[in-house]
Design a protein around this nucleic acid. Structure first.
Lengths: 252, 252
DNA sequence: AAGTGGTCTAGACCACTCT
DNA sequence: GAGTGGTCTAGACCACTTC
């Protein structure tokens, strides 16, 4: 097991007239070099000082670029040794992602059928979940998500009224999160709970399953960057057709 | 909705003789100030330059401390505005955590019954999952996890043989991940898949459930910092007694 | 216009790992 | 002892938000 030699002759093109930060330009080019295999797994990056000198950058700037890739899990730093490309194939870590986007990225050609989209007073449960007063107006959304013409999930969401205009036609053409982003709502964090249960008769019928079939359940409360609760949802997935997959990184 | 005034008079005690980095000392004291409510949600932190001057630190050092809390989701920075404490109660984000530790932290007094702990040749499936040759020696581990005397999960794990000594008594007294950490194995990342299915007769009997009961399933492949696969596991949880709960942060 | 965070520089010394 | 990343300093200019 020999240590790989530093890959010395990579050409990075930095544009100082670009509004894109230099550390970010470097990080992106490093990332694509790793993805394309120009930087092999396990290979050393070469020391920061020399790299900074070669690129005409200061060391902190180079460090910032490298650190962002370490945070992404693509690189590992070891003091006294150097910075190496991680061996394993890192996929994306768990993101606060949209089911619609996930399916679309997986080439599953998702479709949405909006079953309900109306404003009504919040029940006690919904009010508590959204942190608003009972009886306040909330948007109630019920959607069926299909792939290849088959039902895959039943999505029920609640949003404080007035946060957003939810056009049914647009909802069927795209996802809820994409509409929120377009409305200037920047998601910050979410609290999720994933469980399972057996389908009731109603659920089975709605999802074209049999009674008692295994269902995955997910509840999510989403916050924007000011800490406001912007969405509460209860989702049900057919376990026969869906599983949550994700990559975790250890906080160090 | 008035903007909260900067909380100006917080006293931070920095110890320059300590081996603990200054930025880390500051970050910890900020974090505990937030947790204890000395820094109220929504309150402004005061600008970095002034804070640096008051603490006798340089601005980059103060920034590093603040940035680490932003990464944790406790603070939000807005250009032209300032740095604020996030409103929502941030719990911990999803970690590559040990079920044992999670239960212990929740005061569930977990117990483990080791059903199997032996070395045997890897099957094709296990070899593929661990990235080793078929027929190589692997440790096979089967455990029942109980809380309050009731079965909660059935854990099946595979590890490359020779990585670790797995004493059955120690396994029953603590968790696998804690033993790996003690053996100098530093986890780096893991790929997980969470699904659901109905219990077979055997599974139902083992977990004291009824046939057809909903089960949560989890498969995990764990990597150390060099990218080596150090563990592959298939876990089954009683959905009536367990759900995955976690906080997600949006990558920005 | 004033104040904030975002980026960047050019150095410095220390702690750790390897040979 | 040589080489690496880890930490830290004291400035600088820019972009954005708010008034």
């Amino acid at each position: 097991m020999t240590t790989p030699a530093p890959s010395s002759s990579l050409d990075f093109a930095l544009d100082r007239t670009s509004p894109v930060p230099l550390y970010y330009q470097l990080a992106q080019q490093l990332e694509s070099a790793i993805e394309h295999g120009a930087l092999a797994p396990g290979s050393l990056l070469g020391n920061e000082i020399e790299l900074a000198g070669r690129l005409g950058l200061s060391r902190p700037t180079v460090r910032q670029a490298i650190q962002s890739l370490v945070d992404k899990g693509l690189l590992v730093r070891r003091r006294g040794v150097g910075t190496q490309v991680v061996h394993s194939q890192v996929k994306r870590p768990l993101e606060l992602s949209s089911l619609y986007d996930d399916l679309e990225a997986a080439g599953q050609s998702p479709a949405t059928r909006v079953l309900r989209n109306e404003v009504q007073p919040a029940s006690a449960e919904v009010a508590a979940a959204l942190g608003i007063a009972e009886g306040s107006d909330v948007i109630v959304l019920e959607r069926l998500r299909l792939t290849h013409g088959q039902p895959m999930a039943f999505l029920c969401n609640f949003l404080p009224a007035g946060l957003l205009q939810l056009d049914t036609a647009k909802l069927e053409a795209t996802g809820l999160y994409r509409m929120m982003r377009a409305a200037g709502i920047t998601l910050h964090s979410a609290r999720q709970s994933i469980g399972a249960r057996c389908a009731t008769v109603d659920e089975a019928e709605r999802l074209e399953e049999t009674e008692g079939a295994a269902l995955l359940t997910m509840q999510r409360t989403a916050y924007d960057s000011t800490g406001r609760i912007v969405e509460y949802g209860t989702h049900i997935y057919r376990a026969s057709r869906y599983a949550f997959e994700f990559q975790l990184l250890v906080r160090s």
